[in-house]
Design a protein around this nucleic acid. Sequence first.
DNA 1: TTGTACGCGTTATCAC
DNA 2: GTGATAACGCGTACAA
Lengths: 341, 341
Amino acid sequence: MKQKKVTFDDIARHTGFSKTTISRYFNNPDSLTVENQEKIAQALKELNYQENKLAKVLANGKSEFIGVIIPNFYLGYFSEMLNCILNTYEQFGYKFLVFVGNDNKESERKYIKELLAYKIEGLIVLSHTIPSRELASYNIPIVTIEREDQFVNSVNTNNYMGGVQATSLLYKNNCDILLHINSVMSEEIPSYGRIMGFTDICREHDLKNELILADFGNSYQETKQCLENVYQYIKEKYPHQKKGLFLANDTHASIMLNLIFREYGKLPDEYRIVGFDDSPIATESILPISTVGQQIDLIAYTAVELLVAQMNERKKRRPEPQKELIHKEITPVLMRRETTD
Amino acid sequence: MKQKKVTFDDIARHTGFSKTTISRYFNNPDSLTVENQEKIAQALKELNYQENKLAKVLANGKSEFIGVIIPNFYLGYFSEMLNCILNTYEQFGYKFLVFVGNDNKESERKYIKELLAYKIEGLIVLSHTIPSRELASYNIPIVTIEREDQFVNSVNTNNYMGGVQATSLLYKNNCDILLHINSVMSEEIPSYGRIMGFTDICREHDLKNELILADFGNSYQETKQCLENVYQYIKEKYPHQKKGLFLANDTHASIMLNLIFREYGKLPDEYRIVGFDDSPIATESILPISTVGQQIDLIAYTAVELLVAQMNERKKRRPEPQKELIHKEITPVLMRRETTD
DNA sequence: TTGTACGCGTTATCAC
DNA sequence: GTGATAACGCGTACAA
């Protein structure tokens, strides 16, 4: 019942060639005569040969593996990103070994070790627990996406521009007061740019504004509770004023929209809302939510492309060490929908 | 700059032992004296040894790889499932090679070939393009999840029970008319059971009911358009009657809820809604939606467990061929929320 | 308890 | 164009 694998040796015996020639058939077919190519092709079919890439990797060192570390699947943002990353297989041919970090630094270290044991050629990191300095020390091509990236190559959304876009839209909606509601965060992580964009535009147009930074927890229920408090707070603090709300992401925006909509049975003129990400929930909500769209497909593609470039460099006889880090920025796209004019 | 890899040979030379002893240190440490173990451990650190699992695989045949084929990331159901599958790494130690099929049969065949080339020990299939007969012919341990499974092992939600639960809940809500809105589908796929459950309960209690089967497209916008038509249809056909709506999944349920809520500014008594899956959108909607919860974590765990059992059987000296197919059913859990009483 | 010799399936380096 | 032969890094009889 055990199917014994057909190897180059079997093909060689069957055709009368040597192993070497069989190998050449795959890696440099032009070096064989056409008729011999056909002989071998025939034998492959007859014996039902199945290639063994692991043996190939051991011999030539190219695993064609890329490791991926995702923090979690909360928010839909990461699953969409993973989806886009996986889909680059068609373009680049690299296979992905995926781990979910669950915000556990020790786990993630273990995963990286495992990935290295499988001889991944490069690593894409979306989780944020391990500092980029440590990541860089692994001495393997790395690209991070939307996280602290001081010592590694990265691809990020131009968060500052996103903040500017969202804030400008609310400004054009003639709001009396602009509020940006976000998590407390370090200035080093890319999304801090959203806060900068917000404050800069408010200052530029001398707009009344408030920055509400808080901890919104790690689950939908926690987040909802926190945002309810925020809602009560702004309702009492700014009654009868047209409030422009710029939320940290579409999930938060949706929660806020739901709170308001359930109270009024609609979105009253008193509120304007802009989210961030263009997640599915932004369109699936009770009203399609205006949002700053991250071009996730482009981000994913750019990340893999950048990684592949580095990996290819390493394969050269005399690889040039990277002179300086590359931080690519992807332009966000403002999506005007029904929560703004 | 190229870091030459440290191998067992290096460790052996460094410690004065043979390669074999080093190998044994990893695979059967008890066969060494404690002090020799420490010597080797010391050397490993000094030389900064990094294991090479690919070489190990080539030598012993155990790749510890499981292939996964997902149809897409639409609906959130599959990303949640993938998340749960990936998280079984902590339990079983298997690594996952993931491909997204995108409903393309030829692509999926190509992916399977690639997976086989990497010597996966087993395969988990969630996509439905390739018939189970063909899957079985690959002669490798396979478990499918929620798809046609005539010739392969599988794990499915007990869809019939789910249909019964949803319908019974609507029945208890004293609806005048019960409607089940679903896609047209073959009787062979597991979720057909939901339809059976619905019709059986309706018959059992002699309930007025209608089964609306249609094609709801492949994108949110298409689905929304189709459901708008359905909404108009039932509104006109059953005015002033309390309508109990059992939707195919939570995304559909959410769309329907939004249509109604936007018209009335609330969910009127005239409508009761039950979804299926317990996707994030069920709780994130304008009203938390009552739904039949699939125990995705349990399904994923069961699938991997079942697969691991088969893989272990194959590793035995004299593997017993599987006598008969295993089809596990996971009980769904009814979630009563705010779209029913 | 430890070592020798060979095998895993492929690629790379020489020869011819 | 084609073929020996030696890697690649580790596991595993079989010996000692």
